[in-house]
Nucleic acid binder design. Sequence first.
DNA 1: GACTGTGAAGCCATTCACAGCT
DNA 2: AGCTGTGAATGGCTTCACAGTC
Lengths: 220, 220
Amino acid sequence: MVRGTRVIVKTTKIPEATIMRLAVYSRFLEHLRKHDTVTTSSGTIAEGAGVTPAQVRKDLAYFGEFGTRGVGYNVEELCGHIRRILGLNKKWPSVLVGAGKLGSALALYEGFNIRGFHIVGVFDVDPDPVGNRFGSIKVLPMEYLDEVIEKEQVQIGIITVPAVAAQDVGERLVEAGIKAILNFSPHVINLPVDIIVRHVDFSLHLEVLTFNLNSRRTIK
Amino acid sequence: MVRGTRVIVKTTKIPEATIMRLAVYSRFLEHLRKHDTVTTSSGTIAEGAGVTPAQVRKDLAYFGEFGTRGVGYNVEELCGHIRRILGLNKKWPSVLVGAGKLGSALALYEGFNIRGFHIVGVFDVDPDPVGNRFGSIKVLPMEYLDEVIEKEQVQIGIITVPAVAAQDVGERLVEAGIKAILNFSPHVINLPVDIIVRHVDFSLHLEVLTFNLNSRRTIK
DNA sequence: GACTGTGAAGCCATTCACAGCT
DNA sequence: AGCTGTGAATGGCTTCACAGTC
């Protein structure tokens, strides 16, 4: 124990799976809100999120007591709580590196902007797409990376370059001051431990499907 | 116990996380193979995949003994084994429903075709994009779904429609004989238990990032 | 000496079951 | 009666540590 430390560190480690589910709950709650539902229950949320009611309650319990016993949860209120927990009450400007097919789709993808993430810069090493425009954003050469990141206070970087370039781009982003990275390339990247990195690889999920299709047929 | 049953069901449940990691290992092994590496070790694979050596060995142990004690693994051989386990030795034709930005990016994404998945049909309910072409594939109206699925023996469906349409499209795919679904829409879908469904939602991952950025700053 | 394969231990997440509130 | 919040129990995944092999 460090003497004199006044900061109370929440020692309860929250499972990452819980965070992911909270995000799913928030989606479902927004859906309910749109349909003017005022009150809901752990059972209803569970069904909408594809989990068990006990799971919903446990997940929420990590952060406080948001419901009323015997009654349930106020949709509007719970939705707000979860959004605040996830940090969705703030704006999160981000930069995207890799202006290929996937990159352009993500840059234009409405789903991102809707939820508080907006891409303030798209970059590419390859001079070819530079100068092109994706919606209102134009693709810039890598030289402008530091400038944009500092000016717009960007903390999040999205990588959509081919596998071979991923590691380099990751390091480049860290140099430029990025704190968290979403890596869509099919290559694992190694960065300092204080950088939050998440690897999102579609084909990985496809391979889980083929594994299951395969073994299911074998067993039958 | 059912009398007379001769089928030996492998009771060892394999963790889904193991399958996902095997897919990552196979990527790294292919990378090694390209660089003409003949032999490797659990330590090297672990580093390339961002896990521990023990984890690599445990994962492989579910399926057999592929290495040589004191020596390591033959890259070519292990790669083949894993590919066979995941079912990647076969072709997996698939259909994609939802010809929006994300759908078109995925249909054109080289990463898919490379690994044995190829999209044999792109569909959309909205008549607008129908008739457009994504590379060599043209977007068809939903009426042709059953025909294509049967003719091409398709088992995998990819959903890239907006949230509101996801459930309907899922049911439609199941009707048409699809056995496994990759759902890219931001809405959980409920389908019969014998259908394998995986939900891939980018913004979920972004929200994990913002949660971490948020709580990190609070603790500091 | 190096590295795999594996039972056992440890750890973490989910589920259960019930007390507590409305 | 209905539904939340939670300690306890369960189950499952990961890590450890070492015997076995080259």
